[in-house]
Nucleic acid binder design. Structure first.
Lengths: 152, 152
DNA sequence: CTCTAACTTGAAGCGCGCTTCAACTCAAGG
DNA sequence: CCTTGAGTTGAAGCGCGCTTCAAGTTAGAG
């Protein structure tokens, strides 16, 4: 049957390396049937799951969160258009927030280009309390400022 | 003299952990004089350098690029307001680009929320050629798509 | 049936930006 | 002078999202 994909086919169609697909499976993000010889065979619907994963990553969501989102699906299955809509709306909020923070940073940067102050105490650029939170996966762009009692 | 800071003082004032400051020094991002007993003493100007580093990180610039930027300074010294202006303008372009890409992603997401297609071949969301490039430090948010001859 | 490309696994490694640790030395107040 | 908190080093570890490797097995065309 041609409606089951090998890992190589899924890789080519999704643009995701086989090693990454296996990694996703270990994390519980996608699933595969097995042939008698223990090779993976993916239902076409897994393509959607992979697409959802990659898009979510671009939004800045970690694989762990993506897994949680996928598990939250009523049927536990590949997202239907309705599921997709619900999840997308959720991610959209994050995207909005990221854009908002980056825009604020840009504005602050503009404000500072004129002054050149860079005063750690006063410059708006250096107010971590309101800076970027959780950027990309794996990266702590916003700096979990270590115990610094001098909060100023 | 109180115009030299210990690493602890610089840490508190900058909000950056001592371990990170030592790490920056090893990478050549900041520098310190030494006491007779081999302890670091920072000129106050290093505060500006640290501020510049942290802000640049928020913009999504890697430490290596920040190092290169700092080394590019005419005098090789801590950024003056003019230097700062030049560098900031540079970073600003990156920030603009990041915001542009995220905004595009958001729009695409909106467009897709209605259709729920998620077709890997056709959906604009899945066109890696124009997606986010180099997000935060350390993170490959944009997915160096492995050899996939099927570029569609 | 044979051959080869594609698949399987677990373990280890990578890149970035740090943090943590152990073992030790220094600075400075009482 | 003594004590104690702060500093020093190199090496190792962490978290995330993978990739790479070695050693072996399978699928499917010829």
């Amino acid at each position: 049957m041609t409606d089951l994909l090998t890992i190589g086919e899924l890789s080519v169609r999704s643009g995701v390396a086989p090693s990454a697909l296996r990694y996703y499976e270990r994390l519980g993000l996608i699933r595969a049937d097995r042939t008698g010889g223990n090779q993976r065979r993916y239902a076409r619907a897994e393509l959607r799951r992979v697409a959802f994963i990659r898009i979510s990553q671009q939004v800045g969501v970690s694989l762990d969160e993506i897994r949680a989102a996928l598990e939250s699906l009523p049927g536990g299955r590949t997202p239907s258009p309705q599921d997709w809509e619900r999840l997308s709306a959720n991610w959209r909020g994050r995207l909005d927030e990221r854009i908002r923070l980056l825009t604020k940073l840009r504005d602050d940067l503009d404000g500072c280009i004129g002054c050149g102050c860079l005063s750690l105490q006063r410059c708006t650029l250096n107010n971590p309390g309101d800076a970027l939170a959780g950027e990309g996966p794996g990266a702590r762009l916003m700096l979990p400022r270590p115990a610094s009692p001098d909060g100023e």
